[in-house]
Nucleic acid binder design. Structure first.
Length: 559
RNA sequence: UGGGGUAUAGCCAAGCGGUAAGGCACUGGUUUUUGGUAUCAGCAUGCGCAGGUUCGAAUCCUGCUACCCCAGCCA
């Protein structure tokens, strides 16, 4: 599969290009290695686009490999969701889906190899003791009293760990490297721990599970990965990654390259915290349209292409601590949908307008383009009747200067139809506006009125033909740029109470049988997507992906 | 106070010794039956700071400063 020709330079692309030019590598192999303990989010999209994009650009392969070494946290539902998300984003992994657990036998044999070489040992220290012996950032650690066990004893103990003779926490297998290393990862890192857990792939076969460090590089090597791209926090692990490759008879030597993970304002990308939102029912599941998960964004109406474009826009660097403006994401989806979403009229907050100089039973139908700049999109048929809905926001009884919409005595154009003038405001006993009485200027269809300029154009829907719809207006889940900035303060305090506003609107008749996941631009309002699942009281549900740019609202806010 | 990293505009980011790309955001003009779109123009005498090398430095050297990551039997 191949998309998006724009390939801005970045340090990884440059490096690989140079390696290929110099003949150091022929065909590259990358991999996307998620742990199946949650749903993929926008930060993972950056990694997916990078890894699969690299393979595409240089004619190599990218594998999908689940890093499934911790059965306590992993679930099959996450595996299924992750596969679906990667596919939806538009990428195809080379060969079958892979699992680190596919390599557990080989990993165990390599552990035995290290033991035989005197480079690994079984440690009986408790977790607390191990922590104490490890030292601190500024003080060296000290060797475990079990560090010098014989090869035979280590081998036997390791085997007994494997078959489940010991309780969790009783023993671990450790590499024998350097307890005084300034790099804490090299202070005899743990290779295997005891876990009497059912594993989603291997069932009850194992009672010990390899650590990330003992698994990742070797899995890369087994798969022939050439470039193992990961995030910056693994930088300190690279010496360990390389230590295993040097001390084990691996078939090839991958190189680890780190890049900065994505941080975006108003957004959380901690799987732990996202899971908390889900588990506490603060959002409506992992695919709630307010979630930064790929499945949430899909439901919200984001297109795969817009997410890929966003990832291209933000670039790839080693500079951390940066914060991408979510406006860039909004730009990416707007520009895709501006080009590709058919237009429709939909009234969000209906206000009835009676066209008083039009007879009862009047009906006139307009053929309207599906998209102003594209003729390949199906035209729409829009009926005008005596009563129409307009948006309450398009009328003001006492309009400010430069309000180009409806007001008493003022004129406005009904989009695709006539210019009307507001003659009367009908109110109920409570003084609330119930309807507007307007008159049509019949000499304005498809042409400007004589002798005056009518600047305003508003959208509308026939009362008799419009289809009632539920509209879900989404906004940022958090109202502060950095919801988890305060280390200990509760990020839930920063939730945006208006992240979801539900309205009962009316859409033009052609939308009656809209298929799930169909996207529209509701003219003058925003981009909406028919929900994948929901229908409410047999009504269609449209999720607002993002609003149109609104310079009027901006002007209002300023003054 | 140990180790590993990173600093280019409000934000993201190119740049790799020859005189600061691009995008987002913002500001102003034009077009427009979407206050949308499109389009034009503006937006770093300066690249964390201070020195030095050089005809020439964001790029090389030295010294500072700020921020990020690491003390899970998580990944």
């Amino acid at each position: 599969m191949s998309h998006d020709s724009t390939t801005a330079p970045n340090f990884i692309r440059n490096q690989i290009r140079d390696e290929i030019d110099e003949g150091k590598v022929d065909k590259i192999v990358t991999r996307f290695p998620p742990e199946p303990n949650g749903f993929l989010h926008i930060g993972h999209a950056k990694s997916i686009c990078l890894n699969f994009g690299l393979a595409e650009q240089f004619g190599g392969d990218c594998h999908l490999r689940f890093d499934d070494t911790n059965p306590a946290k992993e679930e099959q539902q996450y595996i299924d969701a992750i596969k679906a998300d990667v596919t939806w984003l538009g990428f195809e992994w080379a060969g079958d889906v892979r699992y680190a657990s596919d390599y557990f036998d080989q990993l165990y044999a390599w552990a035995q190899h290290l033991v035989r070489e005197g480079k690994a040992y079984v440690d009986d220290l408790t977790p607390d003791e191990i922590r104490e012996y490890r030292g601190t950032l500024t003080e060296p650690g000290k060797p475990s009293p079990y560090r010098e066990r014989s090869v035979e004893e280590n081998l036997e103990l390791l085997e007994r760990m494997r078959v489940g003779e010991f309780a969790e926490g009783d023993k671990v297998l450790r590499a024998k490297i350097d307890m005084a290393s300034p790099n804490i990862n090299l202070r005899d890192p743990i290779l295997y721990r005891i876990r009497h857990a059912q594993h989603h792939q291997t069932g009850d076969k194992w009672h010990i599970y390899p650590s990330y460090d003992f698994t990742h590089g070797q899995s890369d090597a087994i798969e022939g990965v050439t470039h193992s791209v990961c995030t910056l926090e693994f930088e300190d692990h690279r010496p360990l990654y390389e230590w295993f490759l040097e001390n084990l008879p691996v078939p090839c030597v991958p190189r680890q390259i780190e890049f900065a993970r994505l941080n975006m304002n108003y957004t959380l990308t901690s799987k732990r915290k996202l899971k908390l939102l889900v588990d506490n029912g603060i959002v409506d599941g992992w695919d709630d349209p307010r979630m930064p998960t790929l499945s949430g964004m899909r439901r919200r109406g984001y297109t795969p292409a817009s997410i890929r474009k966003f990832c291209e826009m933000i670039g790839v660097t080693r500079a951390d601590g940066g914060l991408v403006d979510i406006a860039m994401l909004y730009h990416a989806i707007r520009s895709d949908l501006e080009d590709n979403a058919p237009r429709a009229m939909c009234v969000l907050k209906p206000l009835k307008v009676v066209l008083t100089n039009v007879p009862e039973g009047f009906e006139e139908v307009y053929d309207v383009k599906g998209h102003p700049a594209r003729d390949d999109m199906a035209p729409r048929r829009i009926p005008l009747t005596r009563e129409v809905w307009i948006d309450r926001d398009d009328f003001m009884e006492e309009p400010p200067k430069k309000f180009f919409r409806l007001a008493p005595g003022k004129e406005v154009r009904l989009r695709n139809s006539y210019v009307i003038r507001c003659d009367d405001v009908i109110k109920n006993d409570a003084g609330e506006i119930e309807a507007l009485h307007c008159s049509v200027d019949f000499d304005t269809l498809g042409k400007n009125p004589e002798g005056r300029k009518v600047k305003g154009v508003i959208h509308w829907v026939s009362v008799t033909h419009g289809v009632p719809v539920e509209l879900r207006l989404y906004d940022n889940l958090f109202q502060v740029e950095l919801p988890d900035k305060d280390k200990d303060a509760d990020f839930l305090e920063h939730l945006n109470p208006e992240s979801l506003i539900t309205l009962e609107g009316v859409a033009e008749p052609g939308l009656k049988d809209t298929a799930p996941e169909t996207r529209f631009q509701f003219e003058r309002v925003g981009y909406f997507c028919a929900d994948r699942y929901a229908r409410r009281d047999n009504k269609l549900v449209f999720n607002r992906t993002v609003g149109l740019k609104d310079t009027w609202a901006k002007m209002q806010k300023k003054s």
